[in-house]
Amino acid sequence: MKNHAWRPFLVAGGAVALLLTVRANVVPSDFGVNGRNFTYGFYRKGAIAYWKAVKVKYRGREYCQDCHEDKEKAIMASPHKIIQCENCHGPAIDHPDNPPKLTIDRSRGLCLRCHALLPYPGTNRASIPGIDPDEHNPRQACVDCHNPHHPNLEDMK
């Protein structure tokens, strides 16, 4: 074969070599069939570590009770014991280091999540004491009268 006939082959070979070099450098070494098969398990293994490293923000009641024992005792003696501290006080994250102070949600809307009256007899909503937010002291904060840690009506402020 003449020399000129080899040139396209060389160019094609060079392109393939370039592609393979780029591929070897760009595709991470842990990329491949790591799971059950190609259809469902073709991925980069490092992605699992990424998702495991997400910061835990909601620490749970057990985290709060070590320091706030008195508050924990009060709430555990009330019907509100089923509600996690962080549902109202916000996620603890690394409190007291970060954030040093949690922002408490004292809004009407927070209480109304459960205590707005809905006429649904088949749901557990019906067994929760409910009010009509437009009739029951509208625009006044619930916590002005009700203490969420002692929610019974005898302990009203």
């Binding site: 909601y58 509600i83 962080e86 549902n87 996620p91 999540r113 459960c114 809905l118 749901t123 557990n124 909503r125 929760i128």
Partner: peptide
């Protein structure tokens, strides 16, 4: 479920 939506917020 009573539809309080605390799960969505969390």
């Amino acid at each position: 479920c009573v539809g309080c939506g605390l799960c969505v917020k969390a």
